[in-house]
Structure formats: structure tokens, C-alpha cells
Design a protein around this nucleic acid. Structure first.
Length: 292
DNA sequence: CTAGGTGCCTGATTGC
DNA sequence: TGCAATCAGGCACCTA
């Protein structure tokens, strides 16, 4: 599933590939892919506009247009955005096709039809409720710590909450919690200062490494970049979809449980479900530390 | 605020 | 072999 690293990769590629190019026509094959306003209106209003730049906010891709409006795309589970020559025959799952004035096309393809396209003159209408960027300067460890302190629920569903933090999905949440040595069911406000800092750094480490690897493409998940290439972070995943395999840190078998209705992967030895008591011996091994 | 449920979808998997 | 039931999963939306 496309999460922050995949969307970031796509945004960088698209900015390189289509910034400055004019949209000639919009063809919609599945009208429900257009969340706002309507497929008809897109076809009517976008032709003639140029794409001035492409960036990311949370898991949203933002294509800025020359008339100062923005076209946003959320890929959800199976969405893909691909740039190809207009001569390419349509993919069976193409939902919206943007014909470009230079003879190429930008295709939004989406097997499961969960992805959505938004066109607006006010970004807040779409991304206004998103929490901070995990890799942004604004999110200091102090701010992260303060935010955790006033939440009583389990840490994993909180990290998945886009209003709390924008961009994490199931894969990178499991990976970050493992790297930090924090059990997904721990109450957010029960984390010690050390655990909070480890988690903060683990999130940034995992996302940074995944971006460097151009994202995760699993066998049955068809994330591909704008030119159709897979990401290579799948081979570096430590726990996600590795139930039964040995923990890379201690060798214990990785477990799969369900948290908040989502498949969750963890090492039962490295990620303790009970908060450390204040006067107990300090934590043993080194979580995070080196991230080979 | 928190926790749980449903619907949206389709391809893969499992069961018989 | 074939067909039906089940499941995954991000997010909006609803109820308690």
C-alpha cells in the first residue's frame, strides 16, 4: 500500500516528469474516483491548465496547477499514477486519464477503486485536518512526547491516525514500533522518555530508509512508481508480513496479532506489552542503535 | 477522547 | 475442476 515513502517517491518523480506540462484533456472511466467536484467538471475545467509542480502532504499527492488550483490524489490501497506515451493501450484498471499536451498521458489506475482525486482552490478542504509531517522540522521530540502524553489509547492505532501524524500506514507503523522496541498495544501515555525518543527516531529512520529504497513493493501489492518500477524496501522489512520468521534482533519467532482491526507484526520478546516499572532494572539490549 | 462496527472494492486464498 | 465464502486494508462515517 502506498504510504509516505511511496507517495514521496512518486511526488519527486512526477515533479521531474510533468512539471511545466499542460493538461489537454481528462477522461474518466470510473466517475467515483473523483471525490470533488465531479468527473464532468474536471473534464471541463482542467484542459488548458499546466502542472506547475508536484509535492506530497501526508499520503496525498498534490499537483499544483497554473490557475492556482490544486489537484490532489490519494492512492489508498491499490492506486497507481503512471506517466506514459499517449499511444500506450489503456490498462484494465485505469480510472482517470489525463492527456498531456506533449503527447504523454498521466494515468490514475486503481484496482480496488478506493483511491480518490480531489480538485480544489483551497487545500485545507482536503488536507486541513492532517497532523504534522513525521519528517518535518516542526515535529520535535518534545512536541511528539507532549502529544503522546495526552493520549490514553494504544500506540499503534494512534500512529495510524492521520490527524495525529500524517503519512504512516500499516507497514511503516509496524516497522517503527519494532525498531523502537515498543509493543503496539502499549498505551501512548505509558511510554517512558527513552521509549518515546526511540519511537520518534525509529519513525524517522524507517521512513528515511524506505524513501532511499524508493518504497515497498510486495508480491501481491502492486505499488509501482511513475515509470512502472517497484521499490526495494520490501526486502529490508524486519517484521511486516514476516510472521513465523526469526526476529532479526533476537531470533524469536515474529508474531501476527490484530490491533484495531489491522494485521500487526511484532517480536514478542523485543516488544514488551507491559510498561517498564519505574524502579525496575533498566532496559537491556540496545534497540535502534545501529540500523543495519 | 476511545473503541468498536460497517461500507467501499477486488484479487487471492481457502473450503467443500 | 469449479464455485462460493472469506479476507485484507485506508478511511469516512456511525454508534456507544
Amino acid at each position: 500500500m502506498p504510504e509516505l515513502p511511496e507517495v514521496e517517491t512518486l511526488a519527486r518523480d512526477l515533479d521531474r516528469l510533468v512539471a511545466g506540462v499542460e493538461i489537454a484533456a481528462v477522461e474518466t472511466c470510473w466517475s467515483r474516483s473523483v471525490a470533488i467536484p465531479t468527473a464532468e467538471e474536471l473534464a471541463e475545467r482542467l484542459p488548458g491548465c499546466s502542472i506547475t509542480g508536484v509535492r506530497r502532504r501526508g499520503k496525498f499527492l498534490i499537483l499544483s496547477l497554473s490557475d492556482s488550483s490544486d489537484l490532489l490524489v490519494h492512492l489508498r490501497m491499490s492506486g497507481q499514477l503512471r506517466v506514459e506515451p499517449a499511444s500506450c493501450s489503456p490498462d484494465g484498471h485505469a480510472r482517470v486519464i489525463f492527456q498531456l499536451a506533449d503527447g504523454r498521458q498521466l494515468v490514475f489506475s486503481d484496482t480496488r477503486k478506493f483511491g480518490r482525486i480531489y480538485w480544489t482552490r483551497d487545500l485545507r478542504e482536503v488536507v486541513g485536518d492532517l497532523g504534522p509531517e513525521p519528517l518535518g522540522d516542526g515535529l520535535t521530540v518534545e512536541a511528539f512526547s507532549a502529544a503522546l502524553a495526552c493520549r490514553r489509547g494504544a500506540i499503534k492505532p494512534l500512529l495510524l491516525n492521520q490527524r495525529f501524524l500524517a503519512g504512516l500506514g500499516n507497514i511503516y507503523t509496524d516497522e517503527a514500533l519494532f525498531l523502537a522496541g515498543v509493543h503496539p498495544l502499549r498505551r501512548a501515555n505509558s511510554l517512558t522518555a527513552e521509549e518515546t525518543e526511540r519511537l520518534y527516531r525509529a519513525i524517522r529512520t524507517v521512513l528515511g530508509q524506505a524513501i532511499a529504497s524508493r518504497g515497498t513493493t510486495l508480491d501481491d501489492e502492486r505499488y509501482l512508481d511513475a515509470e512502472g518500477w517497484p521499490g526495494s524496501y520490501g526486502e529490508r522489512l524486519r517484521v511486516y508480513r514476516r510472521a513465523g520468521e526469526p526476529c532479526p534482533r533476537c531470533g524469536e519467532a515474529i508474531e501476527r496479532i490484530v490491533v484495531g482491526g489491522r494485521g500487526t507484526h511484532l517480536c514478542p520478546r523485543c516488544q514488551d506489552a507491559t510498561p517498564p516499572s519505574k524502579h525496575a532494572a533498566p532496559a537491556s539490549g540496545s534497540h535502534q542503535g545501529t540500523t543495519a
